[in-house]
Design a protein around this nucleic acid. Sequence first.
DNA 1: CGTGACCTTCACGATTTCTTCACCGTTGCT
DNA 2: AGCAACGGTGAAGAAATCGTGAAGGTCACG
Lengths: 232, 232
Amino acid sequence: MSARILIAEDDPKQARLIQLYLEREGHSTLVVGDGRSALEQCRARRPDLAILDIMMPRIDGLDVCRTLRAESDMPILLLTARSTEDDVLLGLDVGADDYVTKPYSPRELAARVRALLRRAGVVGAGNREVLTVGDLEMDPGRFEVRVAGRPVALTAKEFGILEVLAADPGRVFTRAQIIDKAFGFDHFVLERTVDAHVMNLRRKIEADVCQPRYVQTVHGRGYRLAEQRPSR
Amino acid sequence: MSARILIAEDDPKQARLIQLYLEREGHSTLVVGDGRSALEQCRARRPDLAILDIMMPRIDGLDVCRTLRAESDMPILLLTARSTEDDVLLGLDVGADDYVTKPYSPRELAARVRALLRRAGVVGAGNREVLTVGDLEMDPGRFEVRVAGRPVALTAKEFGILEVLAADPGRVFTRAQIIDKAFGFDHFVLERTVDAHVMNLRRKIEADVCQPRYVQTVHGRGYRLAEQRPSR
DNA sequence: CGTGACCTTCACGATTTCTTCACCGTTGCT
DNA sequence: AGCAACGGTGAAGAAATCGTGAAGGTCACG
């Protein structure tokens, strides 16, 4: 349960406090004092979670968050100095997974870190939306998929893959992207593994596996979920 | 304290924002991205409250509201993009219980949700209501559970877990979520601990522990309380 | 200060799921 | 057509997940 955590906070006292608490929980920490370092270290070290103060020299936390979010799904927790709603709104808008407003209790911070870490790796944590594509319905909250009303039992990975594809029907995802988004970004598997899952998935949801109606192969690129042409 | 709330909003960011705020208040949410899904999910899941954006694909919020209102008296809150009076009038005319104009503060939204729920008797009743799932009855106010009329003595944790699951039957909860919601946000416990409690719980409420009728395992995800198929 | 209820963790085995591999048919390019 | 890269497929070993019993710890109560 230990993780590598980046702490971006320009006030050394604050940083030390956070560091102390998190290390007591068995995590290893890395402290940086400004936004640019935060960005660099996140890219280089790929921590399991980043804690970003919003007000920082050079690049502010919001920008760092925005940039990071564009590159990865790493869990990000924002520290907002003021508890004005604008800050919170902005933070979430920018893609943060959670926020803590100062002054905070270190205990709360640690708890939220813990919660975020547990949820990391869980696909669709923030994407609990009922998706419908043609005769295919999926409900991430219930871990349920129905084809033409008939429920289908999928495994975790199969569900994850379908979820990724369904997030943007018609768009082609490479195997690398699928592994990243469905399995978690620290998952090391061969790309061919995706093929195996896709096949199992097809066997469960396709009427004719040779002529997939939903999960289609794009030769040399990857897979996609076909947009269903409403036949009416 | 907790209600099941449907959020119909086509902008994922907005949806996530609302979701985060409401879940922090202890509610359980379900997000849909278009009007048709909103209608379907409302009919199928019967949430305690629906939040509808007016501008949505497929069927707009006003129509959804009108239709829902014709079939039930579920509390409905409309999100209107523009704050023109026409919209507001139209919204209320169509049977909405309240409306919030964008841009709104999440705090305000949460407050209105609370008010609506209280008015509807969902939350105000303080969960004095007895939850019934098949032959399982639980009375959170009394800390009492009965299976087929026979009272069963549960420990605090067992009761907490059952309560979390019962808040939204059919929905799958990860062990992390269960720990957060049942034990408290700052409770530090291995996820496997949940298993132990679930087993003890099953031994008390299940006729056949190997074929759980209530608390079911979802491999790779977590646990859920089965929806009981009314054998009509 | 002993007792018992409860919570948490651990360890083992059973089961399910994941991953890889090898073989072969397809596809796309020249 | 011929070639090389690509993807489908089934099987099998590896790994993850879960159920289960038991041990140790904490706390309240008598």
